[in-house]
């Protein structure tokens, strides 16, 4: 059994079905990168794993640490060890970043060590994300995860809207959280990284890559090979696989 096991997951937003039957799992200590074009269902997958509102699970199950969490509220999933770095985190006016960190910290860590590593020291007394640039928001997200210490990190487009310097800072911190300096068998934390450009892989190593298109996972394999293929051919080849899958699921085009 993996750290996370998803079976037959279908998720709708409003009346629109976005995930159309996902099977997915991740082992302890592993990092999986999920590729997919815009609108393919990557963020929906993350929202469903964490239980964010707006994502209605219509079928399937999500098992985390051996427990079915499909119906658990978001804060309980978070407390069980799932942490999300939002792609577009909101500003929370009036609540200082340090206040939130004090409330969520999981251990006696010195906040300043982490905040220095992420160049966030001078932002601790500011309202969460208020007036932050794109890079500052991403660094704030990673700082929160460092303090929260989840067992499963969900990283939603960690490199989008971020310059090279910030990607380098963020990935250094993520490599530390994910214990990338240790041999694979000794790593405890896992991560699912969403990306549609793959730039983050220049800075972090993933063990597996999966491609999601149109609400289906089309396949998983070597991150470097899949990325090379996407960079060469774009998602067009994947789209062809997707159309095959739709035909199979709906029976469209079959002879009667």
């Amino acid at each position: 059994m993996g750290l996370l096991d998803i079976k037959g997951l279908k998720v709708s937003a409003g009346s629109h079905e976005i995930l159309k039957g996902i099977d997915f799992s991740i082992e302890e200590g592993r990092t999986t990168v999920v590729f997919g074009p815009n609108g393919s269902g990557k963020s929906t997958l993350m929202g469903a794993i964490l239980g964010l509102p707006g994502f209605n699970i219509t079928a399937g199950s999500i098992i985390f640490k051996g427990r079915d969490i499909t119906a658990l509220p978001v804060h309980e999933r978070s407390r069980m060890g799932i942490g999300l770095a939002f792609q577009y985190p909101p500003a929370v006016k009036g609540v200082r970043l340090s206040t939130l960190l004090d409330n969520i910290k999981n251990g006696d860590e010195d906040l300043h060590t982490y905040s220095e590593m992420l160049n966030m020291d001078q932002y601790l007394d500011r309202d969460i994300n208020l007036g932050f640039s794109g890079g500052e928001r991403k660094r704030s997200e990673i700082l929160q995860l460092m303090v929260q210490k989840p067992d499963l990190l969900l990283l939603d487009e960690p490199e989008s809207g971020v310059d090279i310097e910030n990607i380098s800072i963020i990935s250094r911190a993520l490599n530390l959280i994910l214990e990338k300096d240790k041999p694979l068998r000794k790593r405890k934390r896992s991560a699912i990284i969403i990306t549609h450009t793959g730039y983050i892989l220049d800075y972090m190593r993933a063990d597996t890559a999966c491609v999601i298109v149109g609400g289906y996972i089309l396949g998983c394999g070597s991150p470097s090979e899949i990325l090379a293929e996407i960079r060469e051919k774009g998602y067009s080849q994947c789209m062809e696989c997707y159309r095959d899958m739709v035909r199979r699921d709906t029976g469209a085009g079959q002879e009667t």
Partner: peptide
């Protein structure tokens, strides 16, 4: 939702936002 994703209950999250306000 953002604060609850960090592990705060809805009541705790509301309280934090109100106190901040």
């Amino acid at each position: 939702s953002y604060l609850m994703a960090r592990g705060l209950t809805e009541e705790e999250a509301r309280s934090l936002i109100i106190r901040g306000f």
